[in-house]
């Protein structure tokens, strides 16, 4: 059996602790590929990063339907983003977006029909909610033609999309916050704890 002469605990422990303190508070960069996607107007925007604003530049994006049909392929730009037209999909179809960061890194984001605005429950607007959406329809004076109403609806939808896009981008940034200090300290605790348990078990075995 290999009886390793290890470093004495009193010297090793401070060294390891220093290593942990040195690395832990630094922005916890690492190679986990974070992928987030959202609908913006008629497009889908994909954002891929390695955490803490380290974009995955030139990441290969593959978009597949829930049934596995390839819908779109492309590469992320210098900001780790890719914008492509929202594919026409049957209601209740999901979209799986896979981003490959090379060197074995891969991240996946699945968009539900609700994320895509393609929910059959949402598209079939119930009668009462229709009236709730258009409360001024009966009373308001503008007698708009159907074409004008459609145009107006598109304008409003575009304006809302523009307004909420920064919010969605902000959510995307929050998604790539990387490992938290709590997880790092927790992991070290687990490792030392497991070692302690094993040592206690071994010493009890020895005593017997």
């Amino acid at each position: 059996m290999n009886r390793c002469r290890f470093l004495p605990l009193d010297k090793l422990f401070p060294t390891i602790l220093l290593l942990c303190i040195f690395f832990a508070p630094a922005p916890a960069f690492a190679h986990h590929l974070y992928v987030f996607a959202y609908v913006s107007g008629g497009d889908i925007v994909v954002q891929a990063s390695f955490g803490h604003n380290r974009p995955d530049v030139g990441g290969e994006v593959s978009v597949k339907s829930g049934a596995g049909k390839l819908l779109f392929q492309g590469k992320t730009d210098g900001r780790g983003m890719l914008r492509f037209p929202r594919p026409q999909l049957p209601p209740n179809e999901t979209v799986k977006i896979t981003v490959s960061g090379g060197a074995g890194h891969q991240g996946v984001w699945t968009m539900t029909p609700a994320d895509l605005g393609n929910d059959s429950a949402a598209t079939e607007v119930p009668a009462e909610s229709k009236s709730a959406i258009q409360p001024a329809h009966h009373s308001s004076p503008p007698a708009l033609s159907e074409e004008e109403q459609k145009y107006l609806a598109r304008l409003v939808s575009d304006a809302v999309a523009r307004e909420i896009e920064p919010l969605k981008a902000m959510m995307a940034r929050q998604m790539d916050s990387g490992p938290s200090l709590r997880n790092i300290i927790g992991g070290i605790g687990w490792l030392v704890g497991i070692g302690g348990l094993a040592a206690a078990w071994a010493s009890r075995k020895k005593q017997r």
């Binding site: 290999n2 090793l12 290593l19 832990a24 916890a28 070290i188 070692g195 020895k206």
Partner: peptide, 25 residues
Amino acid sequence: KHIDTDHIIETSLLSSAFFVASLAH
């Protein structure tokens, strides 16, 4: 089998060092 029972804690400490090293970018 190669871990000397007296040095389990040291092994776990080096394991911790490996665990945090991946966070240094």
